[in-house]
């Protein structure tokens, strides 16, 4: 019998916890798993919030000056129009983040994009290894009970050990 080739490996660091930055690690991880790769994601700093049972990831126009503001409803011409308000103005309006998050979630849904929860579930189903950075967990005071089950805990050495034999490594 022909020996099966060793699967490729993807090593990701997820360091950001906003909705926009939650997508890349889960999209890449679930797709790599669908290609038969072995995948591990190391969640550190704000990325750690993506392991919470209840996902509250939002988007923020602050520090994202190029973020397009689009309406998820109405005629197509209106939807494609960019609502150009000064970024720093939007970032400072109370409640704006919630509005912007809600609009972006509606746009995603309408265009047929999976939710973060769905992608995360698909990663878990596909056997993606999710590693919580123990150091960050202690610093932020996150309890194990706040996180989803089936995650590993570790530190830099744990990630590097996996990444040392990875074919693709990305810091997100």
């Amino acid at each position: 019998m022909e020996e099966k080739p060793k699967p490729k490996r993807l090593a990701l660091v997820a360091s950001k916890g906003t909705l926009d930055w939650a997508y890349p690690p889960f999209i890449l991880a679930s797709t790599a798993a669908a290609m038969g790769w072995e995948v591990a994601i190391f969640f550190t700093f704000y990325g750690l919030t993506l392991l919470k049972k209840e996902l509250t990831a939002k988007i923020s126009p602050a520090s994202n000056p190029a973020m397009p503001m689009k309406l998820p409803f109405g005629p197509e011409a209106l939807q494609n129009m960019n609502i150009s308000l000064p970024n720093m103005l939007m970032a400072n309006v109370p409640g704006f983040e919630s509005v912007a998050t809600s609009l972006m979630k509606q746009s995603f849904k309408k265009k047929g994009v999976a939710t973060i929860e769905e992608l995360r579930d698909m990663c878990l189903d596909a056997g993606v290894t999710l590693i919580s950075c123990q150091m960050t967990q202690e610093v932020f005071g996150f309890k194990d009970e706040e996180f989803i089950d089936r995650i590993d805990h570790g530190g830099a050495a744990t990630f590097l050990d996996f990444a040392s034999t990875a074919d693709v490594s990305l810091f997100i």
Binding site: I27, S30, T31, A34, M35, K111, G112, V113, A114, L119, M122
Partner: peptide, 13 residues
């Protein structure tokens, strides 16, 4: 139909 990346690949798999 109507799905965007990475859903078509994930569903196909």
């Amino acid at each position: 139909q109507g799905m965007l990346c990475p859903l078509p690949i994930l569903k196909t798999k």
